[in-house]
Write a protein that binds this DNA or RNA. Structure first.
Length: 501
RNA sequence: GGGCCGUUAGCUCAGAGGGAGAGCACCGGCCUUUUAAGCCGGGUGUCGCUGGUUCGAGUCCAGCACGGCUCACCA
């Protein structure tokens, strides 16, 4: 191994990167610790700004607020023997004022080896400038970290969508909205935990690796366990495991975790996504609707201060109760097809095939689903519970007591997106076996998303699943709604990207 | 997977057959309450890649790569 010094690579570096490495050497030669182990700071920028931004200059001076604050330098304005710069933490900026006469000639000149992007701690007293901006007058500064690459442009930030996702750290440094979205996401998830914990639920973790992929209709990712010599699948849903817990007497459980689906990537789909699933014994899908309204409405009021969401060009009202409509009624209302048209099953399948292409709609139920997605979903902007879809496309749901072809199930649609899906859980093991067999039949006909027969799960049901309501909520899509983002990638820190070649 | 669009300096972008450009950033100089600081001077580049057409290609053509939008797919 040849011991190449970093500067040997200077041929590959841009001029700005070479300059930054030179400046780093200058600091080292001046005795600065380039990678300090521990710095005694007194406050975060966020703490200082929220505590003192409203204080008057006189009050600040009288109080003599002496602090040491760390941050990343995001702008510098040099003015001869003095300079202003802003330091920033994830969402807040604070101005610092450095004067040669105040801090001393040596420390002032050493600062010329500091670049935008570097991290420093500034020590000094708070004051207000002529324009009223809260500022720290530096008595000293400490080097924290060198940024060896130039930062994106200060005004436009980082616009390139691909770069924003590939270099999320940079996106977070220069685009304040990004940090805000992910803080909102964190608060939404914390709020959900609070809601369920407060209702006596317990949070659980079930396997991510399944021997049989189940709980949803989707194509799985495949992997292999060497020691067991066994094919495994990344889970497409936790559903079947959570219901095992209900059989075991854990009457209220929820899980917030990742699901993996080996399907297309789009503005609404990422191969790994976060799902909330919850199950409550002695509840049914009506209870699930009540809880869903309450959870999402209250979260919006608490986190956004309103039950009116702005989503793109839409205003979405979360005022309860939300619209409820039966699947078949929604179909005839929005598709423009006469209700009688749906009696002719072959013609419906034919229509779905023209809409979605060959192989997309092998059965009547699937065909209805295709027509729904195409003609109904885009219209459902205000929160709408679409109830009682065909049993055939709901293999884990109880049939409706008053119509054996319908499932006691709903999907929550908001802004044309499916946000949640819930049902009264099918508990009859023999009926479940029949449903699996029908799914297996569809699978044989080429429907890769159909369920496979899960004997183990049927055996679990044979021990007795009480009447239970269960629901899955797409967390990423919920965050999209709350954060007013049209792409799921804006709300996932590291969305899946093709490796850079 | 199909269609449309994009890929030019570190970033944001203009350039549509013949001199590689602007703003920010960067480098040098001036400047002690500025804040998209200002003033003077400096262009730092494999124009995504590979071929082709042409006297001449960032520009036209083909293929490829990556990305965005959209359609399809998608509990």
């Amino acid at each position: 191994m040849s011991e190449k010094k970093p500067e040997d690579k200077s041929g590959d570096l841009s001029e700005q990167e070479v300059v930054r490495r030179e400046k780093m050497r200058n600091l080292a030669e001046a005795g600065v610790d380039l990678f300090p182990h521990k710095i005694a700071v007194t406050h975060s920028i966020q703490e200082i700004v929220s505590a003192y931004s409203e204080s008057s200059g006189e009050d600040l001076e009288a109080a003599g607020v002496h602090v040491v604050i760390p941050g990343r330098i995001v702008s510098i304005r040099k003015m001869g023997r003095a300079m202003f710069f802003h330091i920033k933490d994830s969402e807040t900026k604070l101005q610092a004022y450095l004067r040669a006469d105040k801090i001393g000639q040596g420390k002032y000149e050493l600062f010329s080896s500091i670049d935008i992007g570097d991290m420093v701690a500034v020590e000094g007293d708070l004051f207000k400038t002529r324009t009223g901006e809260l500022t720290i007058l530096a008595q000293d500064w400490t080097f924290l970290a060198k940024c060896l690459h130039p930062l994106p442009e200060k005004w436009h930030g980082l616009q390139d969508v691909e770069l924003r996702f590939r270099k999320r750290h940079l996106d977070l440094i220069v685009n304040p909205d990004t940090a805000r979205i992910f803080r909102l996401r964190s608060r939404i998830i914390a709020g959900i935990r609070e809601y369920f914990n407060g209702r006596g639920y317990i949070e659980v973790e079930t396997p991510m690796m399944h021997a049989i992929p189940g709980g949803a209709l989707a194509k799985p990712f495949q992997t292999f366990h060497n020691a067991l010599g066994m094919e495994l699948f990344l889970r497409i849903a936790p559903e079947l495991y959570l219901k095992r817990l209900t059989v075991g007497g854990m009457n209220k459980v929820y899980e917030i975790n990742r699901n993996f689906r080996n399907e297309g990537i789009s503005t609404e789909h990422n191969p790994e996504f976060t799902m909330l699933e919850f199950y409550e014994a002695y509840a049914d899908y009506n209870d699930m609707m009540e809880m869903t309204e309450e959870l999402i409405h209250d979260l919006a009021v608490e986190l956004l201060g309103t039950d009116q969401l702005t989503y793109g060009e839409h205003t979405i009202s979360l005022k309860r109760p939300w619209k409820r409509i039966k699947f078949m009624e929604a179909l005839s209302e929005y598709s423009g097809l006469a209700p009688s048209r749906f009696d002719n099953r072959d013609s419906i399948i034919e229509l779905a095939v023209t809409l979605a292409g060959e192989g997309a709609a092998p059965t009547y139920g699937k065909a209805l689903d295709v027509i729904f997605d195409k003609h109904v979903k885009p219209h459902l902007v205000q929160p709408t519970f679409v109830m009682n879809p065909p049993k055939e496309i709901s293999p884990l749901a109880k049939a409706s007591p008053d119509n054996p072809d319908e499932a006691q199930r709903f999907e929550l649609m908001v802004a044309g997106m499916e946000i949640a899906n819930a049902f009264s859980e099918l508990s009859d093991p023999d009926e479940q076996r029949k449903r699996f067999e029908q799914q297996a039949e569809a699978r044989k006909k080429g429907d890769e998303e159909s369920h496979v027969i899960d004997e183990d799960y049927i055996n679990v049901l044979e021990y007795g699943l009480p009447p239970t309501g269960g629901e899955g909520v797409g967390i990423d899509r919920l965050v999209m709604l709350f954060a007013d983002r049209k792409s799921i990638r804006e709300v996932i820190l590291f969305p899946l990207l093709r490796p850079k070649t």
